[in-house]
Design a protein around this nucleic acid. Sequence first.
DNA 1: CCCTGATTCGC
DNA 2: GCGAATCAGG
Length: 223
Amino acid sequence: MSWTDQRIDQLKALWDKGLTASQIADELGGVSRNAVIGKAHRLGLKSRPSPVKSNDADKKAAPKKAAPAPAKASVAAAPARPRPSAPVAEPAAPVRADDDAAEVPATRASAMPRIVSIGPGGFMRQGPGDQQAPIPPAPPRRLVPAKPSPEMADKTSLLDLNERICRWPLGHPGEADFHFCGVPVNPGFPYCVEHCGRAYQAQLPRGVRRPPPPMPFGGPRVR
DNA sequence: CCCTGATTCGC
DNA sequence: GCGAATCAGG
């Protein structure tokens, strides 16, 4: 299995949601827990509470490991490999999509707090089996009063959302051109057909856990 | 033991 | 870039 854009999206979303690497791996299927962790790190996803991380700020007694065989490193002359393990994570005030959307533009140069717009709401797939009204998404909240710039004139803003148009977010909340898809929805779903394809993916990684395959959209109405 | 994430390093 | 092997804490 390779890391397609969509699988990466899922990874990001699930990681953000706080699922464990194992769960994510299981969810994605075809990858190991290690693969997920490895990828997550390569992507720069920040590690959430990890068991082995509370590094002392100062240690006195140096509890040396009796230098057990490296088991792997075939490095003959390589001295001790440094273990940084103190990446200094700036907490940074959490930016909420609620009311500050109008006031973010100013300083985004260096300290932008990594707001990742995961799929709308960070919801999970919805197996055709356990079909239910597709309401959970509930993307952003209320905000953006108007369309100040002409650039946004033809973009679908939050205020434009209704039952009939696709509310798949494009861009990231807070960004100037953040808007919604706006295309007519796939009847019975909050998104257009294309984005339904993104939102509800029927993959069945782990054997029996994933019920039936047929894609829901395009056909069956939910009521 | 089980779990977790972090890191290393051969590929 | 990828991920198994390994490490290390809970």
